[in-house]
Design a protein around this nucleic acid. Structure first.
Lengths: 227, 227
DNA sequence: GTCTATAGTCGGATAGAC
DNA sequence: GTCTATCCGACTATAGAC
């Protein structure tokens, strides 16, 4: 990996400037790939936005595809950083009280955190775009994102749905419910431009976000079997 | 428009062969744009798949963007052709019996037809891909698709939700519910590759499609206020 | 390590023969 | 109307100076 090479020469020479350049390139790439996809984003645009010249991308990441994969790894870290708190909170609640009602509450915590990333957070916009695009059209980063982001997240949600509904739901059915629930959030991430126009909303933040989330919580009540 | 130009010389000369070439190009373009988007699709690839040479695209459609817009118009027609029956059925049911229960039944008919297009139909795969992509990243075809496909469809669904729930729901809330409901179907259209992997399903057709739809129908019961 | 300069490729568009 | 041949711009990648 180009990353460990970079660390190797840094350790040897004590050179530090490179790490800042590397971070800027990664940030610019995340933004560009998230907005335009692998093919749509150009290395020139990324280099310019990062304030480096073109060959720097090859130097640090081996090329366009290496940069794309590095973005995926960065996304996994950011996803974990953002979701770790809510996930631990949800798990702690369930360990203290394994009731269906608590599972429903934990589910709402997890979905709210996910929705916050997908719908509201401006900083998360780049990486959610990247992730959603890769799920629709599997590319070089599909496996890592599936294994590190989607599968664990969906497993947790499906598990919480199963507990909340009691024994009356099969494992597969809970997984389908989880997919439908998470996908419904795409109304305000992937499909946001259309949704905002349809609701005549300038954005989906603040009170508007809260309003959507109240409705999503009602849907969760429905999924988990409360009238 | 290049289209009316084409019709003009046909009417004058009685020449017919061109219309077949035009249709082949449109079909190939629909498939290519649906799979790869405007930038991702190449005119060379479209021309080759259609069995024509490159300048034919300019001749018939004025260029890449003209071809893209022609695809959008074609999609509107196909959407209407596919959805007209179910929409009329839903409206007829509601006119005969304006009860919440009937509205719920009509809603299930409309959603099932929509899901069939988005999830199961192989022929619809190209145009649903095109539509979903354009909604996420507004391009030249956004306005026509929004006005002719999304807005009318969502209006009908939001209206049916409102009737099914009685007077207890605001117009805006019904619209948000409609967006969330329709978006949940994207689990098996936009996000299909990931969903199929997660469920360990080879495809989402036949009995598997029916299984998902049974769960979607339960969600509709939840949205429309049945326990 | 970082840069300039350029090689090599590919895509959209079009001129002009027939 | 349909074709071949070609132009021009933009892209990725890389050689080589410092």
């Amino acid at each position: 990996m180009s990353r460990s090479d970079g660390q190797a020469w840094e350790a040897a020479s004590g050179y530090r400037k490179g790490e800042a350049a590397r971070a800027r390139i990664l940030e610019a790439a995340l933004s560009a790939f998230g907005a335009n996809g692998f093919k749509g984003a150009t290395t020139r645009q990324i280099a310019e936005e990062a304030g480096v010249n073109l060959p720097a991308l090859k130097y640090y990441f081996g090329g366009k595809e290496g940069l794309y994969l590095a973005c995926a790894e960065e996304i996994v870290e950011r996803y974990r950083r953002q979701m770790l708190g809510p996930i631990l909170e949800a798990q702690a609640g369930l360990e203290a009280d394994g009731s269906p009602a608590q599972a429903r509450a934990s589910l709402k915590i997890v979905i709210a955190a996910l929705a916050d990333q997908m719908m509201e957070s401006r900083e998360a916009e780049a990486w959610t775009g990247f992730v959603l695009r890769e799920m629709a059209e599997p590319g070089p980063a599909f496996d890592i994102l599936y294994g590190q982001v989607w599968a664990p997240g969906l497993d947790l949600i499906a598990y919480l749905i199963g507990v909340a509904r009691g024994e009356g739901v099969s494992r597969k059915a809970a997984r389908i419910e989880a997919l439908l629930l998470v996908s419904s959030l795409s109304a305000f991430s992937t499909a946001r431009p259309m949704s905002l126009k349809y609701l005549a909303w300038p954005d989906a933040g603040g009170e508007r976000f809260a309003r959507v989330m109240r409705i999503v919580d009602e849907r969760i009540d429905g999924v988990t079997g409360r009238s």
